[in-house]
């Protein structure tokens, strides 16, 4: 059992991993987290020149927040964990005495818990600073945008669907898929991961078409479903469907990352 997981060894590896993240991505994370604030401050500085008020538009502000999050989830894996496919740095990482499970768990803790927490803190800080300059800005704009400030933002009337959990799972899936790509591809890690996602999407749509073309899924079935439609039932279906989908995707991504770490060669 100690060969698979040991708390003391995991602690050491986690500290090492954090050091690595700080050295490789600390500054980039800070820039990304403060990105909406920086854009706002630039317009504030330029306002005497342009003769207008400092710019603020909630939709564009949310867009900037989205861009910051997207950039982090696309490039974090390649910058921090992409080194494992390099000849020199990868060799040193593979022979580091920690088990594949410990290395995987540390990666998951950082990408799915610590990184979003730090990014969120920075985005909220940006939001708060902007709200000090522009009185009509909601200091919780970021919260609302992420579906954390209220229920039902993303799914209309189905108030019991767990939006924050879904938002977090969507983040985890996004960042883990690009981290897996970074562990697998030696060069153009992000581009090749995009191509894979594209290919898999096409494959999935063909598969879905094939399923819907079978005799068991026909118009009558849908008609019957909508005949006795009620909101609570639909909500249950959505919850179960989403849970199954996200659970399956997360399990596949975690298994893929673990398998890659376990079998990577130099």
């Amino acid at each position: 059992m100690k060969e698979i997981f040991d708390f003391k060894r995991f602690g050491k590896y986690f500290v090492y991993d954090l050091n690595n993240v700080y050295a490789r991505y600390g500054l980039s994370l800070l820039i990304m987290g403060l990105f909406p604030l920086v854009v706002f401050l630039v317009t504030l500085i330029l306002s005497p020149v342009t003769g207008g008020k400092p710019w603020y538009n909630p939709d564009i502000y949310q867009g900037l927040t989205f861009i910051a999050m997207l950039m982090v989830s696309l490039f974090f894996g390649a910058r921090v964990y992409g080194i494992v496919t390099e000849k020199k740095a990868g060799t040193a990482w593979i022979i580091l005495p920690a088990s594949a499970l410990e290395k995987t768990l540390s990666l998951l803790l950082i990408t799915c818990v610590l990184l979003p927490a730090c990014l969120l803190a920075l985005l909220i800080f940006s939001n708060w600073i902007v709200s000090l300059f522009v009185p009509n800005v909601d200091p919780l704009e970021t919260f609302r945008f992420l579906g954390l400030g209220g229920w039902g933002l993303a799914v209309g009337g189905f108030e019991h669907v767990n939006v924050p959990l879904m938002a977090w799972l969507a983040w985890c899936e996004g960042i883990l898929v690009f981290t897996l790509g970074a562990l697998c591809f030696k060069r153009t890690k992000v581009g090749k991961t995009f191509l894979c996602i594209f290919g898999l999407s096409i494959l999935a749509s063909f598969l879905m078409m094939a399923i819907f073309n079978t005799t068991s899924f026909n118009g009558e079935m849908f008609e019957r479903f909508f005949e006795d439609f009620d909101e609570a039932r639909a909500q249950r279906w959505i919850n179960v469907g989403l849970n199954l989908f996200h659970g399956g995707v997360m399990a596949a991504l975690i298994a893929g990352i673990w398998a890659r770490i376990k079998t990577i060669k130099a």
Binding site: E3, R9, A23, K88, T91, I95
Partner: peptide
């Protein structure tokens, strides 16, 4: 690559990584 095996061995390659430490 069991940790207790890795803890008792080291490989020094011809080319080594210039880390930022």
């Amino acid at each position: 690559r069991r940790p207790s095996f890795l803890q008792d061995q080291y490989y020094l390659p011809d080319e080594v990584a210039p880390v930022n430490y």
